[in-house]
């Protein structure tokens, strides 16, 4: 990392700007943490920090998938993630009815469901040339319909204790959800940075035509990316459901837009090819910290929306101002 930075310094005359572009989000996070600890003494308590990280897990997982989809460019984004999340939650609750023995097979079904939704999304986008926005919006509505047909509007059942443990328990003093998120971040980082698949994602996001001329299988990569997003959404759905603990038709409502906001705040651009998973996670942490600060200050819960909106706009425009002046 250090080497990369110093190379950039030599190459670019406007190195300070590019530094800001690269690390702006981290600076933002640091400022936020300092401000938060100044306004509320409770903020830096271990339990509170643990809560923030715990709450970030599900959004973080969705956002990892979303990062892949947005990186691929061409207007790529996945609006169907929240619908997938709620659907796997009701599948789990209905079929296991709280029995541990059924957890693994049903989880397999859930993950398969997410992957299938992603596959359909990807196929529509590559083979039928539907815009990602429309394809995933359509899938969002269809999956919602399927969910309500399945539950007949009244979700029932319970989650198995093992799922509750995975979402809310601790290993030693570290919450399991943080460990899982960390593992997924590392895998995602590895895939994006060290594998040919990751290179293809960046290449296609950077310039589809060049990537095609390089002989990359564009369609296959795009479909895989949507499958990753569906897969991550179903894991996140199971986590969030385990965290909440009640079978509900709307688990994860709003996560599709929150995850997109986190990804963009983290520096991944809609044009594709720029950005990455680490920034996304910082974006998620910022959103969750803001929620937390609002509550610590004893403000009404609704203030969360206001603060979140203001910060999304401020962070992204702060960021964009560096990016724009650079070119």
């Amino acid at each position: 990392m250090q080497v990369a930075v110093s190379k950039r310094l030599q190459r670019s005359p406007q190195h300070i700007r590019s530094l800001f572009e690269r690390f702006g989000i981290y600076i933002f996070l640091a400022i936020l943490i300092v401000t938060a600890s100044l306004v509320s003494p409770n903020f830096l308590k271990p339990q509170n920090l643990k809560d923030i990280l715990n709450q970030s897990a599900a959004l973080g997982m969705v956002a990892i998938g979303q990062t892949f989809v947005i990186l691929i460019g061409g207007g790529g984004l996945d609006l169907s993630v929240a619908s997938v999340m709620s659907t796997v939650a009701v599948i789990m609750a209905h079929n296991t009815e709280g029995q541990n023995s059924l957890f693994i097979p049903v989880m397999g079904v859930c993950l398969l469901f997410g992957i299938i939704v992603g596959f359909i999304n990807g196929t529509l986008i590559t083979k039928r040339k539907v815009q990602p926005f429309m394809a995933t919006l359509g899938m969002m509505i269809i999956v919602q319909g399927i969910r309500f047909l399945y539950t007949k509007g009244m979700p029932k059942g319970e989650f198995p204790p093992i799922q509750r443990y995975l979402a809310t328990g601790d290993i030693g003093s570290v919450p399991t959800s943080i460990i899982s998120l960390a593992v997924m971040v590392i895998i995602a980082l590895f895939v994006l940075r060290k594998t040919t698949f990751g290179r293809k994602v960046y290449a296609i996001g950077g310039n589809v035509n060049t990537a095609r001329l390089c002989g990359y299988n564009i369609d296959f990569t795009i479909i895989s990316v949507y499958m990753i997003s569906g897969f991550m959404a179903s894991i996140a759905g199971l986590y969030l459901a385990g965290w909440i603990g009640i079978s509900d038709n709307w688990v994860g409502k709003g996560y599709e837009l929150d995850s997109i906001a986190a990804v963009v705040m983290g520096g991944t651009t809609f044009e594709g090819g720029r950005g990455g998973v680490l920034g996304t996670i910082v974006g998620v942490l910022i959103v969750m910290m803001l929620y937390n600060i609002v509550l610590l200050l004893g403000m009404p819960v609704q203030m969360q929306f206001v603060v979140k909106g203001v910060v999304i706009i401020l962070a992204t425009s702060f960021y964009a101002s560096f990016r724009r002046t650079q070119t």
Binding site: A261, M303, G309, I313, T316, A320
Partner: peptide, 18 residues
């Protein structure tokens, strides 16, 4: 700012809804 409209209006939605 040149921020994508999706993000700006998403933020605005959050502010107004709140």
């Amino acid at each position: 700012t040149g921020v994508h409209p999706l993000i700006v209006t998403l933020g605005m939605m959050s502010v107004v809804q709140g």
